[in-house]
Design a protein around this nucleic acid. Structure first.
Lengths: 143, 143
DNA sequence: CTACATGCAAAGAGTTTGCAGCCCA
DNA sequence: TGGGCTGCAAACTCTTTGCATGTAG
């Protein structure tokens, strides 16, 4: 069994959830380069399993911390969460709709924590979305 | 005419858009303390005007920069944009669903700009969502 | 074997669209 | 007056739910 699949199986097992075919298909589909929309995930999986099972898997995975929903534009996208990944944010290009992961930046993280603390706010999680134009699209522009 | 209403009228006029009753109702409804969901906005307005007009107004207002969509949890909320406001981010309490505006912080803004620039990314806009527990709910918790 | 998970089908949100009539500029 | 805007109704997309059947442990 491959590395991420093993961890996946472990997490399910820890929570007394069955390792089923449907869940496996959804998990596998999520192992992509970029975060994907629910629509894309459904398209990938619906050939094999029912829509309802996809939604149910996503809900379960989110509860178990296997995946997280990212805000990209108005909609959300899905990506395997930091247990299967690392904490990071994204740049999203409004031109080509590309999503560029940003390396983790402790200075940024610290500042956010500081600001929240100043308001007596206990942070659980945070997300940042930076919209703009990526390098590639800027180059095209100036042609 | 009151101050924000005047500016609202100006922006519409600048773009050769009519100042109609429906748009006025939507704009007025948006002048609330907190960002509101589309559902809440519809509830407020649908007594007076049709749902379709509400959606159409929101779309227009967003194009004209009158309002912006914020990501709160999985859904978005609407709030008058910085032309009618100031640039800021929010803390959202997962316990009471309260939304606490954060004062503008130039250090944070600069860091974000720096990180984007390092990736040769031309920032247009950004949003931050910090989820956690607000002061009030923390107090309740320890009772 | 038994409880949990799935597929199916239908219902329910949320949002968009075409069109005829209305209203702002 | 005329083009843009609205209300209405219907269509569409996305998501959830109930129930009978299937399957992992």
């Amino acid at each position: 069994m491959t590395e991420p699949n093993l961890q996946f199986a472990l997490v399910l097992h820890e929570h007394n959830k069955s390792i089923t075919n449907a869940r496996h298909i959804v998990f596998t589909a999520l192992q992509a380069q970029e975060p994907m929309s629910m629509k894309e995930l459904v398209e990938k999986c619906v050939i094999h399993i029912d829509r309802a099972s996809i939604y149910r898997s996503v809900e379960l995975f989110e509860q178990l911390g296997i995946l997280q929903r990212l805000q990209i534009g108005w909609k959300y996208k899905l990506e395997l969460s930091s247990s299967f990944n690392y904490h990071h944010h994204h740049l999203t290009c409004t031109r080509c709709n590309g999503i560029i992961p940003l390396p983790e930046d402790s200075q940024l993280e610290k500042r956010l924590e500081y600001l929240a603390a100043k308001m007596n706010f206990k942070t659980i999680d945070h997300q940042i979305e930076i919209k703009g134009i990526c390098k590639k699209c800027q180059t095209k522009e100036t042609r």
